[in-house]
């Protein structure tokens, strides 16, 4: 079944709760679903003969601060009928909540944990919603567009000095050492930090 046929079928079944954007000239077309009916739509897609989306290929999110939404994007594929579909659910950026698809496809378990980890979207009905990739005490949701780095973690700083700076310091100290050993009687000025003098 082509994508537009599937869109028409879903619009006929779910009416206002699904809305398809006009197909773009390049890339994939998608269908926006209201969050309340997401599980119902997905179950319909999985179980109806002729659709049979048995494989939840991907579940991820995209942050849109300008529109103040986080889109959860679901890619579906049917092994039997070889057609695919893109579903999108919009959630408010302040407190994003989307129903979990774990009851429909078990693979949604880890995908949703990842989205929770990186975007902070809460999935209602998920059995075990914890951070997946980042440490449990990490602050913030890094894949949001306005994420600011915390500057290291647990006392490990994230600043790396330019190695050339350190090399210069080593060079200078070696030169100072050499100068000191060459003239054992110290000069009037203290030998430390002769950097500004234009030598070599």
């Amino acid at each position: 079944m082509t994508t537009s046929e599937i869109h028409d079928l879903l619009k006929a079944r779910f009416g206002e709760d699904v809305s398809a954007a006009p197909p773009p000239p390049k890339g994939d077309a998608w269908l926006t679903v209201k969050a309340e009916r997401l599980v119902e739509v997905c179950r319909f897609l999985k179980e109806t003969a002729g659709l049979e989306f048995d494989f939840c290929e991907d579940l991820t999110a995209v942050d849109w601060p300008k529109r103040n939404v986080i889109e959860v994007v679901v890619h579906l594929l049917s092994y039997k009928l070889k057609h695919s579909l893109v579903l999108k659910v919009e959630a408010d950026r302040g407190s994003p909540v989307v129903p979990s698809l774990y009851p429909v496809w078990k693979t949604a378990d880890w995908f949703e944990r990842e989205v929770y980890d990186l975007f902070g979207v809460t999935f209602t009905g998920h059995p075990d919603l914890r951070r997946l990739l980042l440490p449990d005490d990490w602050v913030g949701f890094p894949l949001r567009k306005d994420y600011a780095e915390q500057g290291g973690w647990h006392g490990i700083d994230n600043v790396r000095e330019n190695p050339l700076v350190e090399l210069k310091r080593l060079d200078d100290s070696a030169r100072a050492e050499a100068a000191k050993s060459a003239s054992p009687a110290p000069a009037a000025a203290p030998p430390a930090t002769p950097a500004p003098t234009s030598q070599a």
């Binding site: 773009p24 390049k26 890619h75």
Partner: peptide
């Protein structure tokens, strides 16, 4: 690249790899 989105599927050594 014009605004839009695409998913590609390739069969990697560890199975289907999709880039969105």
């Amino acid at each position: 690249v014009e605004a839009g989105e695409a998913l590609s599927r390739v069969e990697s050594a560890r199975g289907e790899m999709a880039f969105y």
